[in-house]
């Protein structure tokens, strides 16, 4: 083990943390909105909507993220009609492609989590709401959403951790986040084990903080809830 090298590279690798977190943050936010939409489609009575949502989830969950990234980044760029369209303004940017891939991925997984959460809302609660004269929107806001969030939070916490881990793949499309910087250092020092231990520890630390944060949120939400 070359500890001095590990110490030096630590300070280089942490410069990738902002990009990693930016990608996690943006994809999570976009992905969550998309997930709610997909989940609502999935539970809707409209066959076309629910089928579309089913196959979207099926495809994303059934294929490796790396392959999805390659498909979006290199596969779509192959066509000149795409490169000449307005889409290229977005697809040209590796960062956009990375965020798009992760957004679609987290949307598919989160949609299932949200669906599970929604289905855990006992019909009696909703009936109680309507018998009190609550409107549909009010019931959604006051009854369904709070219960769904509380139910879905532990699983969603796991999903967040999966997202942090997934960002390591975007280094393959030229983005210099934690893994990207680590790879660059390895190509100069030929010390893959040492450098990847440093990078791995940084991911572990980020995920530890996220886990604590989710635990705290769970505690706050469950505190005072009547089960």
């Amino acid at each position: 083990m070359r500890f001095e090298l590990m110490y030096d590279s630590f300070f280089k690798i942490i410069q990738g943390i902002p990009l990693t977190l930016e990608v996690v943050f943006l994809s999570t936010i976009f992905g969550l909105f998309l997930a709610v939409g997909v989940a609502l489609m999935r539970v809707s009575n409209n066959k076309i909507f629910s089928n579309f949502a089913y196959y979207f989830i099926y495809t994303i969950r059934g294929t490796p993220l790396l392959l999805q990234l390659f498909f979006i980044y290199y596969g779509l760029a192959q066509f000149s009609f795409i490169r000449e369209s307005f889409l290229w303004f977005f697809l040209e940017d590796p960062l956009f492609c990375g965020i798009l891939t992760l957004t679609l991925s987290t949307a598919a997984y989160s949609a299932e989590i949200i669906r599970g959460g929604m289905q855990s809302v006992a019909p009696a609660y909703i009936e109680a709401g309507s018998s009190m004269g609550m409107s549909k929107m009010l019931r959604l806001r006051k009854i369904i959403l709070p219960i769904t969030i509380r139910q879905a939070l532990p699983a969603y916490g796991n999903e967040l951790i999966l997202m942090v881990k997934a960002t390591s793949l975007i280094s393959i499309v030229t983005l210099m986040e934690i893994t990207g910087i680590a790879r660059t250092i390895i190509s100069k020092t030929y010390a893959p084990v040492e450098i990847f231990i440093v990078a791995g520890s940084i991911y572990l630390l980020i995920n530890f903080i996220i886990t604590r944060f989710i635990k705290y949120a769970e505690y706050r939400l469950n505190h005072g809830s009547i089960q």
């Binding site: 290199y74 760029a77 192959q78 040209e92 393959i172 030229t174 210099m176 990207g180």
Partner: peptide
């Protein structure tokens, strides 16, 4: 920075 020449070629053309 690209992992392989092939990938860089594709991006150069694109």
């Amino acid at each position: 920075i690209y992992p392989t020449q092939d990938e860089m070629n594709l991006d150069l053309s694109a």
